[in-house]
Computed example of a mutant assay.
Amino acid sequence: MVPADGTGGPAPRSPDVLFVGTPEFQVPGDLVLSSYPLDVAVAEGLADENGGPVDGFSVEYCDEQGICGFYT
């Protein structure tokens, strides 16, 4: 980032701000999830054969009627 004053020096950074694209930002709690076809998730190894996520970047959500969706 180039500071607004155009000096080319490092931009000031608050220690409590996370920037998109940095490793600190890319954690499951900071990302936006989207619905994903379950059969594709299983085929790509994002979900196990029962539809359960295999990593912390995916979520299976089931409503009170037992209708489930997969999000990644």
Score class of each variant (00 low, 15 high):
residue 69 G to M: 06
residue 10 P to R: 13
residue 34 S to E: 14
residue 32 V to M: 10
residue 5 D to K: 05
residue 4 A to P: 04
residue 9 G to T: 05
residue 17 V to I: 14
residue 49 E to G: 07
residue 16 D to F: 09
residue 68 C to I: 08
residue 36 Y to F: 15
residue 14 S to M: 01
residue 68 C to M: 08
residue 33 L to F: 14
residue 20 V to E: 05
residue 49 E to C: 00
residue 25 F to D: 04
residue 61 Y to G: 08
residue 44 E to L: 13
residue 17 V to H: 04
residue 46 L to K: 14
residue 30 D to K: 05
residue 38 L to C: 05
residue 57 F to S: 08
residue 3 P to H: 09
residue 62 C to E: 12
residue 6 G to C: 11
residue 42 V to P: 01
residue 26 Q to T: 12
residue 11 A to E: 12
residue 57 F to N: 06
residue 31 L to M: 15
residue 42 V to R: 15
residue 30 D to T: 10
residue 59 V to A: 11
residue 31 L to N: 09
residue 28 P to L: 10
residue 8 G to T: 08
residue 3 P to T: 04
residue 50 N to H: 12
residue 57 F to M: 13
residue 67 I to L: 13
residue 54 V to W: 00
residue 33 L to M: 14
residue 22 T to G: 06
residue 2 V to K: 11
residue 46 L to C: 02
residue 44 E to S: 12
residue 62 C to R: 10
residue 44 E to I: 00
residue 33 L to V: 12
residue 2 V to L: 13
residue 58 S to C: 15
residue 27 V to R: 09
residue 43 A to W: 00
residue 26 Q to K: 07
residue 48 D to Q: 07
residue 52 G to M: 14
residue 12 P to W: 11
residue 70 F to I: 04
residue 38 L to F: 01
residue 67 I to C: 00
residue 66 G to R: 06
residue 35 S to C: 00
residue 33 L to A: 13
residue 71 Y to P: 02
residue 41 A to N: 05
residue 71 Y to V: 03
residue 7 T to Q: 05
